[in-house]
Amino acid sequence: MDHDDFAMGQWLGVLAYLTSAVGCALGLACTLQARSTGNARKRLMWLALAAVSIGGVGIWVMHFIAMLGFSTPGLPVRYDILRTALSAVLSVVAVFCGLLVFGVRNSFAWRRLLLGGVLTGLAVNVMHYTGMWAVQVKGTIGYDPTLVALSVVIAIVAATAALWFTVGLDKLLPRLAAGLVMGAAVSGMHYTGMAAVRLHLDPAAPDPAGSEVFTFLFPVFVLAALAMAVPICAVLMASASSAAPRHTPVGS
């Protein structure tokens, strides 16, 4: 075995999936808010919040948590900080582009759904493989092209299905189902991508440059908490505003 994806136990995979599902569910709720507003500026704001929730938490933080279990037994693993940060930025930007295509208008169109699903699914892959570019080991990292292609298909199909769930969702359970579906897309893509990894390790090679994963663990979770708090507050405020009774002025 050249690497282990569950060096800290299977529970880490469950935690990664739940994190992804929550981030995606919140992001899809923001997407629904975007599609239901007629104000262009507010729509862009909601889509930006959705991109942060899905791209930042649902995809990037999920990947980060899952990678806590990645190890090359007996050999060190390090991370390039700049490449890791780049993967987060690319994830959010790419998801925003996909959501912008899908949520730019209130009306539903299959072409926008399909294109948005492709772009959002590709965003998952862009984040994953950019994040893997940041991984430094004693040797080189290669990939099985068949499994890489499969990881792309998984992400696109499930991301498209999750976006479709947001069409006209006005109940809690379907929204949660959409988050679970998209969380499955991200997790499925991640572990399929990790199955595609082909390490060529050289114990005699110099130790890789970079930082240990636990050195930037705390800042990541602080940023994740902030990335969740802002959309949650926005969704709650929007829900409270829409539920508030409207009084007709006397004499009108």
Rank of each mutant, 00 (worst) to 15 (best):
V153E: 10
V153Q: 07
V153N: 09
I154V: 11
A155K: 05
A155F: 06
I156M: 13
I156C: 10
V157H: 06
V157A: 03
V157D: 04
V157L: 08
A158S: 10
A158E: 07
A159N: 10
A161N: 05
A161I: 09
A162Y: 02
A162V: 02
L163G: 04
L163V: 01
L163P: 09
W164L: 02
T166W: 00
T166I: 01
V167Q: 11
V167E: 09
G168P: 10
L169E: 12
L169K: 03
D170M: 13
D170T: 14
D170L: 04
D170K: 09
K171A: 12
L172K: 02
L172F: 07
L173F: 08
P174T: 01
P174I: 01
L176M: 13
A177G: 06
A177H: 03
A177K: 01
A177I: 07
A178H: 01
G179K: 08
L180H: 13
V181T: 05
G183I: 14
G183H: 12
G183T: 13
A184E: 04
A184V: 12
A184S: 15
A185T: 05
V186G: 03
S187W: 15
G188Y: 13
M189R: 00
M189D: 07
M189H: 11
H190W: 11
H190E: 03
Y191W: 14
G193R: 03
G193E: 02
M194D: 06
M194N: 10
A195K: 06
V197K: 02
V197Q: 07
R198I: 14
R198Y: 00
L201G: 03
L201K: 01
A205Q: 08
A205E: 13
D207G: 05
D207K: 08
P208T: 01
A209Q: 06
G210E: 03
G210N: 00
S211W: 15
S211G: 01
E212M: 02
E212G: 12
V213S: 06
F214P: 04
F216P: 15
F216E: 13
L217K: 07
P219Y: 08
V220N: 08
V220R: 12
F221N: 08
F221L: 08
L223V: 15
A224E: 06
A224S: 09
A225D: 06
A225E: 10
A227E: 05
A227S: 13
M228S: 09
M228H: 09
A229V: 10
V230G: 11
P231H: 03
C233G: 07
C233I: 12
C233F: 11
L236R: 14
L236G: 05
M237R: 15
M237E: 12
A238W: 06
A240G: 09
A240E: 10
A240T: 08
S241I: 03
S241L: 09
S242W: 07
A243K: 12
A244F: 08
A244Y: 10
A244W: 11
